[in-house]
Simulated assay, not measured.
Amino acid sequence: MPLNLPEGKRLAVNIGPDFDAHSAWHGAFGRNTPSYLSRGEFDAEVGVPRLLAVFDKYDIQATFFTPTHTMATFPARFESILEAGHEIAAHGCYHENIPSLDPDEERRLMEIAIGQHEKYVGKRPRGFRSPAWDFSDATFDILESWGFDYDSSLMGRDFQAYVPHRVEIDLENGNTFRNPVNLIEMPVSWYLDDFPHLEFIPGINHGPFTIDQLVKDWTTQFDYAYENEPGGVFCLTVHPGTIGRAHHIVAFEKFIQHIVNHDGVWLTSLENVRDTWAD
């Protein structure tokens, strides 16, 4: 179902930085050595200022998906994001791997995260992005119980917001789509994410892909969405410590220039996009 975008707007575009800092290395990779922590520090102290400067230059309101561990570890840098007026959405406590959690632990961590949002942001988050871009069997129920308005973790569409459904698995007779979830999905894609293509993690991720090729792919996807998905949403995921590298941020700004040179593009937060959904 197309979004009811503001008059004159053809395509919503959201840039959603995952401000993971130390937490991704703790939660996603179990890496706690000084080398990996320094990469998280770069994320906060170098990547975030560079991203904020680009956003300010082009008057972009982004959505920073931020683990609460990051808020507590880098409070001054996190405050600079708030002062710039960007949306803060939920991204777990410490970038935990949600499918590996039992339901009680998942609920406990969500309660902690909501409390930390209230402490550091001053309000509950409206949106959620799974740190692992995956759910457990309990996640939909947990998100509904906390009243989230939207999620941005799933991949059932590429450029259209949609209502996700629970799926009952039956390997012999086919799966069945059951009751819809009471939130709106803003879809993501591994093809629209900088981290897996540009980061090197010994033994895990053998990148790097060249930034020029990646931006070329992003440009192709944006152009397709602009021409063929009116009323849609283009969600790009970046990581300050990745896209903030000098050669990356230069190429990223050129991509932003390509976007803003198209009439009818609405570069905004996902909560603003969510508010245009018409039931």
Results as ranks from 00 to 15, higher is better:
P6C: 05
E7H: 09
G8V: 08
N14I: 04
D18F: 14
H22A: 07
H22G: 05
G30K: 05
T33F: 08
S38T: 11
R39A: 13
R39Q: 14
G40P: 00
G40Q: 09
V46T: 09
V48E: 00
P49M: 14
R50V: 03
A53K: 10
A62P: 07
T63R: 13
T66C: 08
T70E: 02
F74A: 07
P75F: 10
R77P: 02
F78T: 00
S80Y: 01
I81L: 10
G85E: 01
H86I: 01
A89H: 02
E96I: 02
P99Y: 15
R107A: 15
R108F: 15
G115H: 02
G115W: 03
G115C: 01
Q116S: 08
K123I: 02
K123V: 00
R124K: 14
G127I: 09
D134A: 15
F135A: 08
F135T: 00
F135L: 13
A138D: 03
T139K: 10
Y150Q: 03
D151K: 14
S152E: 00
G156T: 12
Y162D: 06
R166L: 05
E168K: 15
L171V: 14
F177C: 11
N182Y: 03
V188K: 08
W190E: 09
W190S: 11
F195I: 11
P196L: 10
H197S: 07
T210G: 09
I211V: 15
D212I: 05
V215G: 06
K216A: 12
K216R: 13
D217K: 15
W218Y: 15
E227K: 15
L236K: 08
T237R: 08
T237M: 08
V238C: 13
P240N: 06
E253C: 05
F255S: 07
I259A: 02
G264D: 09
G264T: 05
D279F: 14
